[in-house]
Simulated scan of single mutants.
Amino acid sequence: MHPNAIFDISSTSQFKDMALQSFKHQWQFNPVYRRFCDHLQVDPEMINTVEEIPFLPIQFFKQFNVLASADPVQTTFTSSGTTGSITSKHHVTDLDLYIKSFRESFRIHYGNVKEYTILALLPSYLERDGSSLILMVDQLIKDSNQPDSGFYLNDHAALSEKLKRLDAEGKKVLLIGVSFALLDLVEAFRFNLNSTIIMETGGMKGRRKELIREELHQILKEGFGVNEIHSEYGMTELLSQGYSNGNGIFTTPPWLQVFMRDTEDALQLVKPGTTGGINVIDLANHNSCPFIATQDLGKKIDENRFEILGRFDTSDIRGCNLMVF
């Protein structure tokens, strides 16, 4: 299977076929994933459905070089973390695949990027190296080809002035920001925006007390004067994103699906509508690992929609005692 074939997926059956092909590729070319499957005593000949594919715990990206390719690593994305903590490392051997993935995903969810002025308020990401989010937003800013698009670090006054001006001109604007920075902005300035999308990327990054989504979004809706707050679901270990248009329900592109695992038994999946740990199949991760058991809790609604409910306690994720070499 050529990696770019994932962008031609148009049905659930196609997704499942490619996921099974991807599993065979991982078994053959990814030593870390192969050892994980061996540890679970998985016989690859017995894997006939997507639901039977083992999901690699996301913590492995902190401990091992997760690669299914012998090609040179073009870049390494790293997760943010507190001082002294071990960060995830996602080695990328085909940067063009990542760029095509986020471009296509944005187009599917929001249409032509050239119709938007994209403003970014991502101080915690700009202040470190290795952020996949910064690379994505930087490329989308360039793709927008709008003179007003750009990043803002701490100049909230200039950002406030631009937001109000562009909105008054009726321009389509997308402001994408980390949660704590968006809260800082609405505490300093008040808005009444009509043609602007506010998208939060989650996380207080140790700058503020964590808030539940409903509380965070209510504060931001009042502060920006908008009816909904959009969200982006992405992570260092994935090369694709899900987006929410404000109702807490995330939709995914055709090459990404989520499954829910039992919170008591990490190797068992639960039915849609049941709370569980989020497992992700991201077929854009062809050269690393597409099958990832995340630390997020959620509910699957249907083939391409899911809800985020919270996170596991990272100090004690049930079932992970089964997942150590």
Score class of each variant (00 low, 15 high):
E200V: 07
G203C: 07
F191G: 03
G206M: 01
I198Q: 02
L182T: 04
V178C: 04
K172C: 11
A188Y: 12
M199G: 11
Q218L: 15
E210D: 11
R208C: 05
R213P: 13
S179Y: 04
M199D: 12
V178I: 03
E200G: 00
T201I: 12
F191R: 08
M204I: 03
E214I: 15
F189K: 07
K172H: 13
H217K: 07
N192Q: 12
S195W: 12
E214K: 13
D184K: 02
V178F: 00
A181Y: 02
F189Y: 07
R190D: 11
R190G: 10
I219Q: 14
Q218E: 14
I219G: 15
L211V: 12
F189N: 05
I176E: 12
F180E: 02
L193V: 02
H217I: 03
S179L: 03
A188V: 15
K209E: 09
G177N: 04
E210I: 10
I176T: 14
R213D: 13
L185T: 13
I176F: 14
V178S: 09
N192G: 10
T201C: 15
L185K: 12
M204F: 07
V186D: 01
K172L: 13
I176K: 12
G177S: 00
I212A: 13
G206H: 06
F180Q: 01
S179C: 01
V178R: 04
R190V: 11
V186T: 07
R190F: 10
G203P: 10
L193R: 01
I198G: 04
M204P: 00
H217L: 05
G177P: 04
E187A: 06
R213H: 13
S179H: 09
E187P: 01
E187T: 10
R208M: 03
N192W: 09
L183H: 08
I176Q: 12
H217R: 01
L175A: 06
I212N: 13
M204A: 09
I197M: 08
N194A: 09
N194I: 08
L185Y: 12
I219K: 14
Q218D: 14
S179E: 09
K172S: 11
M199K: 08
E200R: 04
L183A: 03
L220S: 01
N194R: 10
I197W: 08
G202F: 07
I197V: 10
A188E: 14
E210Y: 08
G202Y: 05
M199I: 13
M199W: 09
I198F: 09
K209Q: 08
I198N: 05
F189A: 01
D184F: 06
V186M: 03
R213C: 14
I198H: 05
I219C: 15
M199N: 10
K172W: 09
V186C: 06
R190W: 13
E187D: 05
V173S: 07
N194Y: 06
E200A: 06
M199A: 12
Q218M: 14
